[in-house]
Design a protein around this nucleic acid. Sequence first.
DNA 1: CTGCTAATTGACGTTAGCGTTAAGTGGTTG
DNA 2: CAACCACTTAACGCTAACGTCAATTAGCAG
Lengths: 126, 126
Amino acid sequence: MNQLLTISELSDELGVTARTIRFYEDKQLLKPQRVGANRVYSYKDKARIKLILRGKRLGFSLDEIREYMDLYDADLDPMQVDQIRFLLSRVQLRAEALRKQQQDIQEMLGELAGIESECLSIVDDK
Amino acid sequence: MNQLLTISELSDELGVTARTIRFYEDKQLLKPQRVGANRVYSYKDKARIKLILRGKRLGFSLDEIREYMDLYDADLDPMQVDQIRFLLSRVQLRAEALRKQQQDIQEMLGELAGIESECLSIVDDK
DNA sequence: CTGCTAATTGACGTTAGCGTTAAGTGGTTG
DNA sequence: CAACCACTTAACGCTAACGTCAATTAGCAG
């Protein structure tokens, strides 16, 4: 099913506007094919946008997201060892930051649970 | 140690600029005491700013952060049951979103680990 | 008093991430 | 053919979250 999608189909499916999708292309986050002047999107493009949206949920800027998508895209085989080492260090830094975020979330969930139980005890009392 | 801090001491300790701290006050996220015209910050103010920064790391806007700090601050006892129920639903919604974020992070960590092991295998080969 | 340092308010500048016209192109439908 | 889509580019607009600069004030050192 190598379905190709128009921009409006895609925007509907993903819950973003066509403007947003074009904007991401402007920012070099996408490079869809063209049929004449019209853009057509593959399942890969769709997956990329999902990646972008996930990155945004996690609080990354589009610039950061592009950086890390370049990591995913990186064609490792032709790379020099130095470049790979560098890539590796970036990946590890990023992973560390993400683990930090998980901790942040854990703490916040804890605090929210505290509020929740306070609320419940008060409501139950009445 | 009820140490009171000047704005520049505080900004140094927290790694943000004084401008940022004043900006947060403008946005009603802080209400430090004054000595004359000068602001002085307590450990509570410091804790609030840390909360703000954590919120930002998690991708919340300052408006959202203010909302949720109001939740933490909320004095539950004098509240009506309806208000508490409402508060409760907000808290639960927020917690759900945070759990979703944790999943996002897990997936990203998985992908990063994939890249990492690829890198390592290539580097080791040479 | 002079000069320096740290603080203040106010105003304008900047970047990111889109929203919103405007103006035109190309394909189908009746 | 006209009318109506869905699509295009280009350009301006807008909000959030500060940065930056200017003008001013207060405290202390020499």
